[in-house]
């Protein structure tokens, strides 16, 4: 399958110590790619570069074969949506108005509304289960609903590619799976999804392809069962563990070894 999004020799960061160095990555059409790795390994930085938010120090990002930096920002945003870690909900905004802001890349100075806006916003609210809360203020929603409202915003953007930066952070476990199931549904409907996640079990359960990063490089890339191995987790995260198949999905599950209580960290 030809890649829809690819990174060519990407070096990212500022100054002398780049966060990501000479990284190559290809995202296939229709993949559910999950990027995992220890804190500070550069996974969020990579995701932002893929979404044309970070400017690479060197190398380039190709979207369907064309450099994203050589295209207009709005043109890229019509093909690819990025949900960052901590977006700011404007004071007093309703769920519907927030979703409507995802239509910005489709607007021009004189044409700031079209029938497609209406369709895209409605379908985004329905997919996220927020149609009944359309007129509710985002500030009064629960954490899980609020995150869904942000997902509705990027869905209204109506792009084939979704980039999600730790979309489940700060949610309780039920809402985490709730959201991941939603992403899996969107993926099944044909969207290409790239997500940065922290939890290896969740990553392995939902990804069709797992990318493991360490210190700015890709150290393993492939189907979850090939990437998440006891040796890999020990090497990259420094955590001794067993990897067993998830009793329900047969995907790899990390079981950390207990440590002797007296041993200092």
């Amino acid at each position: 399958m030809s890649p829809v999004l690819s990174a060519e020799d990407l070096t990212l960061g500022y100054g002398a110590e780049p966060v990501v160095r000479d990284l190559c990555l290809e995202v296939g059409d229709g993949d559910f790619t999950v990027i995992v790795g220890p804190n500070g390994c550069g996974k969020s930085t990579l995701l932002k570069a893929l979404g044309r938010v970070n400017k690479p120090m060197s190398g380039r990002v190709l979207l369907r074969g064309r450099d994203v930096r050589g295209q207009r920002a709005k043109a890229v945003a019509r093909q690819l949506a990025l949900l960052p870690q901590s977006p700011v909900a404007p004071e007093g905004i309703t769920v519907r108005a927030l979703a409507a802001r995802g239509r910005f890349p489709h607007h021009t100075l004189v044409r700031q509304w079209s029938p497609q806006d209406e369709t895209a916003i409605r379908s985004a609210l329905e997919l996220t289960g927020l149609a009944g809360l359309a007129d509710t203020q985002v500030g009064s929603l629960s954490g899980g609903q609020r995150q869904r409202a942000w997902v509705a915003m990027v869905l209204a953007q109506d792009t084939g590619i979704l980039l999600l930066d730790e979309p489940t952070t700060y949610l309780d476990i039920a809402h985490q799976y709730d959201l991941l199931e939603l992403f899996a549904d969107l993926h099944r409907q044909g969207r290409t999804v790239v997500a940065v996640l922290h939890d290896l079990a969740q990553a392995a359960r939902f990804a069709t392809r797992l990318v493991l990063m360490d210190r700015g490089r890709v150290v393993a890339d492939g189907p979850p069962e090939q990437v998440v191995t006891a040796r890999m987790v020990e090497e990259v995260f420094g955590l001794a563990c067993d990897v067993v198949p998830d009793p329900r999905t047969r995907t790899p599950l990390v079981i950390p070894h207990e440590r002797a209580p007296s041993r200092p960290r």
Binding site: K48, G51, R52, V53, R72, A73, K74, A75, V76, A77, R78, A81, L82, L83, P84, Q85, S86, P87, V88, A89, P90, R101, G102, F104, P105, H107, L109, Q112, Q157, L163
Partner: peptide, 19 residues
């Protein structure tokens, strides 16, 4: 338009093409 989108944070504004 871009100023309105900017209220949601720099990263999201950039991702939406509002620079």
């Amino acid at each position: 338009g871009p100023v309105t989108v900017n209220e949601m944070g720099d990263e999201l504004a950039d991702a939406l093409g509002a620079r």
